[in-house]
Write a protein that binds this DNA or RNA. Structure first.
Length: 922
RNA sequence: GGACGCUUAGCUCAGUUGGGAGAGCAUCGCCCUUACAAGGCGAGGGUCACUGGUUCAAGUCCAGUAGCGUCCACCA
């Protein structure tokens, strides 16, 4: 084995072997355990958030597979309608072409090409992460099976009246020329203005001042609203206003929406371009005048001079005209929420169009109940509040998109504007008795991407066919995802799966936090702080990284800043840490669902951890590979250390499994790390040396220690495998043949270690703790007194009990080596000790005579420091116990504990003082 | 306006029914001791954001304040 751990040499080959041998497929026996991969968009590549979630899913999958469950990790990708279409359109734009130059068919063909390429990238990246998902079942939301499910769901919902077509005001993205759902609109506060305008009464009897943030829409005004209770204006209700610029007469209406406290109390009403005004318009039967084209330019409804102008150009001109005509009263600075498309960033326009909708309320009801009844549990639980909040106020879902990439809506129109819905044109014709010569035209629109995603839990299992998978893996076990798609995806899956299978889609929803950069900023291309998980695995040169982060930046200034920041943060580029170190980092940071500020220091630390494991394994192999490990029989005698590490391993195993069952991967990781480094490496390996290197050890003793070495390591590797699949497999291949394991094909299809109470040797645990404190005591004196660790020291024992003496004897060999003892002398009760440095082991004092070794002042300082600390503890404990209300009210166990502490402190204090006095007297 | 979350060591974070403040990284000292310098041994470092309350006892429970963050709704 190499002297240091080199991940790049092992990972790819191992993965290929697992995949080729079919280890990722469900075994077909055991309890079903299923995780649905949130299908990544085929738009690009995996980011840190994916890597994080995939690590958790893979750890769970591997763990349950090893536990013997019938385990399926269902994988696949999402066609991501808008996002993908935009990527390919941008590519066309770079060639000075638009999708219209190609036409629909050719354009969609081009997207399929891109999908093949990009989807391949993603699946390759998943393999690098070690994802043990079943590639044979890989799904894609636009493939034939899923498309069939989509059509089926659409038709059925339509038949039940849960899908309908209607003309409504929608969120219109004027760049993409499509409607988007409420969820795809982000409302950001931006600085703007409030224009106050003078609207004259038609009868010349006065005027009203209305205020608006969008003066250009005044051309589409069809009313002015005042609150019916507003004393200032209520007498005007029913009168008319003469709208400036157009001269149209519009009515004054009384409507609760107008807030007398806000602005002037008078609201201009533009029903075709504002959601609130739309409702007012409906209430008062006001006409709706659409003044925009699909790309948000002024249309032919407006006075000629404004026609064809972009809405913001028109705004300037209209404001200027209003000012000139004396209509404009004043302009104030005003902060307002501007709706922007989440993909394009374009200002969304409320726009009157025909769209398809899902009537959501009847679907939402059972979906809410499923969570209320506890059939579906959110982890952590408080996310159910977020879920309820949205579900209780759910609005109908606009599912049609004016795009080319997606599932074409299965609806056909005849020349008279009749609409027919069916699985295909032939079905439509036969269902509605339409002759072949009746011209039918399929709806041009496609469905919202999330419509097909909502079917993922059952569509990937073969629905609408009755498949065995549908029976076995619905519901799935746990959904691992981010809070950002609870509404987009989680809620909709619950609704659709309940509707079409009568079953919940998953039993638990584990909500992860977001991966942010080291300062808590969101990782984004424009900030230039994006880390690519693959770069952390393979490493990347500084120049390549800078190039990657600054490529395609719109503003060169920004690119410079990013380059500078990158150079200072990674002067040497990024080292290759390997998949296992990256995975372990994610798991160790996955505490609750709070966001994670990704810290490179942690990755490096866990890379070192991999190296530690690697070298510990080298040590084990060095001592066992050419030797008798007892796997073929022979007497075995376990040392105290052997018994101790076996017991420690049991405790670790128990902690690990408990933590995993609670999705506390940080605690599980911590347990593994602590055991491996602080117990197995720091103590156990050192404790095997005296046994293995001592000529006095019997063959049974050596065999016992070798047997323990390989078998504990082997079990540890299995324990760690779900977290660090590659390194554990690599080492296991060497170690397993030396152990009692029969099947040495691959670690990933082994049983997970079994908890066993017989291995919990309490006596060994206590004896070794005693021994550790003995050794640490000596080391501490050495460290502070500058005594070389190599120099053997004589030791005197004072106040040693029979138990201490027994332990001295049992630990004799270990103590001599680990503490480098020259000699051990047990002092009789009345025997006077020479001046010494002291360490306390329980009530026993371990003395190192000062003669020639120890400096008087240094030892005094050391004692004083210890004394100070102990005195503080003593005072605090004594204070508690002398507090009458504590003694009378605290539970007895607590009081007893405090008393024991007090005695302990007193004893230590006395000994230290005694020591202090005798040294001071020198 | 409503909901949720955060504030603990220089940095990134744990701290599970209230009962002697922890980890990793960074820092300091000594060590190239044949598994490992990506290491070993030892050490230093915190008025747990602030104020008040409940309690014998509060990082932990309650109320409030300040700062930060997220989501939902929204006033033209």
């Amino acid at each position: 084995m190499d002297k240091t751990f080199n991940p790049e040499n092992i990972e790819k080959a191992r993965y290929k072997e697992w995949e080729d041998k079919g280890y990722f497929e469900a075994s077909g026996s055991g309890d079903p355990y299923c995780i649905l991969l949130p299908p990544p968009n085929v738009t690009g590549s995996l980011h840190m958030g994916h890597a994080f979630q995939h690590t958790i899913m893979d750890a769970l999958t591997r763990y349950h597979r090893m536990k013997g469950d019938n385990t399926l990790w269902q994988t696949g990708t999402d066609h991501a309608g808008i996002a993908t279409q935009m990527v390919v359109e941008r590519q066309l734009n770079a060639e000075d072409k638009t999708r219209h130059d190609l036409g629909r068919e050719a354009f969609v063909e081009k997207i399929w090409e891109w999908k093949a390429h990009s989807g391949g990238t993603i699946t390759q990246q998943m393999r690098r992460l070690g994802d043990s998902c079943d590639w044979k079942r890989e799904a894609f939301t636009m493939n034939e099976d899923l498309s069939k499910a989509v059509t089926e769901v659409f038709v059925k919902l339509h038949e039940e009246g849960l899908i309908y077509r209607g003309q409504r005001l929608v969120n219109w993205d004027p760049v993409l020329h499509t409607a988007v759902s409420d969820l795809e609109v982000l409302n950001e506060e931006e600085a703007g203005f409030m224009w106050h305008m003078r609207y004259p009464l038609a009868d010349g009897s006065g005027e009203m001042i209305v205020a608006t943030t969008r003066p250009e829409t005044m051309i589409g005004d069809t009313g002015v609203a005042v609150n019916p209770e507003d004393e200032r204006y209520k007498h005007l209700i029913g009168k008319e206003i003469k709208l400036p610029l157009t001269g149209r007469l519009i009515p004054i209406v009384g409507d609760e929406h107008a807030d007398p406290e806000f602005g002037t109390g008078c609201v201009k009403v533009t029903p075709a371009h504002d959601f609130n005004d739309y409702e007012i318009g409906k209430r008062h039967n006001l006409p709706m005048i659409n003044i925009f084209t699909a790309d948000a330019k002024m249309n032919n409804e407006v006075p000629e001079k404004y026609r064809g102008l972009d809405r913001f150009e028109a705004r300037k001109l209209i404001v200027a005209d209003l000012e000139e005509q004396g209509v404009l009263v004043k302009v104030e600075d005003h902060k307002l929420k501007v709706p922007r498309g989440d993909r394009t960033g374009a200002v969304i326009e409320p726009y009157l169009t025909d769209q398809w909708y899902v009537k959501v309320e009847p679907l939402a009801k059972p979906a809410i109940e499923a969570v209320e009844k506890g059939d579906i549990k959110f982890v952590p639980e408080n996310w159910n509040k977020t879920y309820y909040q949205w579900m209780y106020n759910i609005q109908d879902w606009c599912i049609s998109r004016q795009l080319w990439w997606g599932h074409r809506i299965p609806a056909w129109y005849d020349d008279n504007g009749n609409i027919y819905v069916g699985r295909d044109e032939a079905e439509v014709r036969s269902k509605h008795g339409l002759a072949d010569d009746v011209a039918l035209r399929q709806d041009d629109d496609v469905l919202d991407t999330w419509f097909s995603s909502a079917l993922w839990p059952f569509a990937t299992m073969g629905w609408p066919e009755e498949t065995p998978e549908l029976n076995t893996f619905v519901p799935s076990s746990v959904l691992v995802t981010g809070f950002d798609i609870i509404f987009f995806w989680v809620a909709r899956m619950i609704m659709m799966t309940l509707k079409f299978t009568g079953k919940i889609p998953f039993k638990e929803v584990y909500i992860t936090g977001l991966i942010r950069d080291e300062h808590g900023d969101k990782m984004s291309k424009s900030k230039g702080n994006v880390l690519d998980p693959i770069d952390l695995i393979d490493g990347i040169e500084l120049e390549t990284l800078v190039e990657k982060r600054t490529a395609g930046m719109m503003q060169p200034q920004k690119a410079q800043k990013i380059a500078k920041r990158t150079r200072s943060q990674f002067p040497e580029g990024i080292a290759s840490y390997g998949t296992d170190a990256l995975r372990f980092t994610f798991l160790a940071m996955a505490s609750t669902s709070r966001d994670i500020n990704f810290d490179m220091g942690r990755v490096e630390g866990y890379r070192n951890f991999c190296n530690k494991l690697w070298n510990a394994s080298r040590f084990v192999l060095m001592n066992t590979e050419e030797a008798d490990t007892g796997k073929n029989g022979g007497d075995i005698e376990l040392s105290l250390a052997d018994k101790w590490i076996l017991a420690k391993f049991q405790n670790t195993l128990k902690d690990f499994e408990k933590a995993v069952s609670e999705y506390r991967f940080d605690i599980a990781a911590q347990a593994v790390y602590e055991f491996t480094w602080n117990q197995f490496c720091d103590w156990y390996l050192e404790l095997t040396k005296p046994v293995l290197n001592n000529d006095a050890s019997s063959e049974a003793q050596k065999r016992g220690t070798r047997h323990t070495l390989v078998n504990v390591l082997e079990q540890l590797l299995r324990l760690m495998h779900p977290f660090m699949p590659f390194i554990t497999e690599e080492i296991w291949q060497r170690v397993a043949p030396l152990t009692d394991v029969k099947d040495v094909t691959s670690i990933m299809i082994q049983q997970f270690p079994q908890q066993s109470a017989d291995m919990l040797d309490e006596k060994a645990l206590q004896d070794v703790e005693w021994m550790k404190s003995f050794i640490v005591g000596i080391r501490n004196i050495r460290g502070e007194m500058d005594i070389s660790p190599n120099k053997p020291v004589p030791v005197l024992l004072k106040n040693a009990s029979d138990e201490d003496k027994r332990r001295m004897k049992d630990c004799d060999l270990f103590l001599a080596t680990m503490a480098r003892l020259e000699s051990v002398t047990v002092l009789a009760a009345d025997e006077k000790a020479p001046a010494s440095a002291t360490a306390l082991v329980g009530e026993m004092e371990v003395l190192i005579p000062m003669a020639g070794l120890i400096d008087k002042d240094a030892e005094l300082a050391r004692i004083n420091k210890a004394l100070e600390k102990i005195e503080k503890d003593y005072a605090r404990t004594e204070g508690k116990l002398s507090n009458e209300s504590f003694v009378s009210k605290a539970p007895e166990a607590v009081i007893a504990k405090e008393k024991a502490k007090l005695d302990e402190f007193k004893m230590q204090m006395d000994k230290l003082k005694e020591q202090q006095a005798s040294i001071a007297a020198l």
